[in-house]
Design a protein around this nucleic acid. Structure first.
Lengths: 162, 162
DNA sequence: AAAAATATTTCGAATACCGAAGCATCTGTC
DNA sequence: GACAGATGCTTCGGTATTCGAAATATTTTT
């Protein structure tokens, strides 16, 4: 009973998630990218520079998957692969202007309508929602430690069934 | 500018989305299903019964895609296909006990840790977050009207922290 | 120097996803 | 009734995603 509110919140949250998930698929096709490609591109962009391994761990993809996605992003001129000098096994991935533009220019239907409706709310409600979502983000991030800078050892058991 | 708060909210929201997206992928592999299969299974379960077309529209997939996914779910014994009597072109999809179990037994990382942390918050904050997320859900739903409405009848609170 | 570990790619196979074509069934109009 | 068109779903053909396992190259350890 104490968790009744938690339950309601989760339910509402799932509605939000579902809506955005659909929106993200629409956005992806609008940019000519697949959702995964967009996800990877965004991750590279927010980090400024990263190795395939880091991205794979953060996004919970296999490295092989990252390779193919980056192949595509590279051929599109969205990101750049550079061999690391310090460790030549590694590659550094960094966003190119084209890639940054693809993210920025994307006509995100979610973002547009959301912003429109959001600014129509009274200021106090905007503030309340912001505070609440910030709080949520903190709760969520806490369980996805992978977002943390550099977590070393293999916390992730990928030995799932094929 | 007035949209500053909207921008911050969107940013925080993206953090939430990313965390849950990753969580959902983990959950899917934990159940032995792909994310899409899990998505479809959940949608069928939530609605209790639905036609392929409805699911396709709600999830923004093509019907052809739903067919293959349902094929898989059916062969796994998770859902059942029944020809409609009223309209024999249609099929009714309904979850089987196996399918419900797959959803219920899945250790949803989002749900578990979220609930734990959430109930630790002071009641006023829980209430605030709930109100905010409800509001968000309304804003989001409004732009995805084509996604058929969820039946509210007999919503099962599977999230019961038993 | 050999062995083990690490970072990434290549390869093979299952699956996802879709558009178009094909079937069966329903609906509207005569 | 009967016929044309609409509707619901599946099948088919094709491209793209995703991953595990093996391969390659480089570092680190012994």
């Amino acid at each position: 009973m104490a968790s009744e509110i938690a339950s309601l919140t989760l339910r509402a949250l799932r509605r939000v998630l579902r809506a955005t998930e659909i929106g993200s698929r629409q956005l992806a096709t609008a940019t000519g990218l697949t959702p995964s490609q967009l996800l990877v591109l965004r991750e590279i962009d927010t980090r400024g520079s990263a190795t395939p391994g880091t991205i794979a761990q953060a996004l919970q993809f296999s490295q092989a998957t990252i390779t193919t996605i980056v192949d595509r992003l590279e051929s599109l001129g969205f990101v750049r692969r550079q061999r690391s000098q310090r460790d030549k096994r590694q590659f550094h991935l960094s966003p190119l202007p084209e890639g940054k533009a693809a993210i920025a220019d994307a006509p995100d239907p979610l973002q547009m309508t959301f912003t429109d409706r959001f600014v129509a709310l009274p200021p106090w409600e905007q503030a309340m929602i912001l505070a609440a979502v910030e709080r949520l983000a903190t709760l969520m991030d806490a369980q996805n430690i992978d977002a943390a800078p550099l977590l070393d050892s293999g916390l992730i058991d990928r030995s799932g069934p094929a």
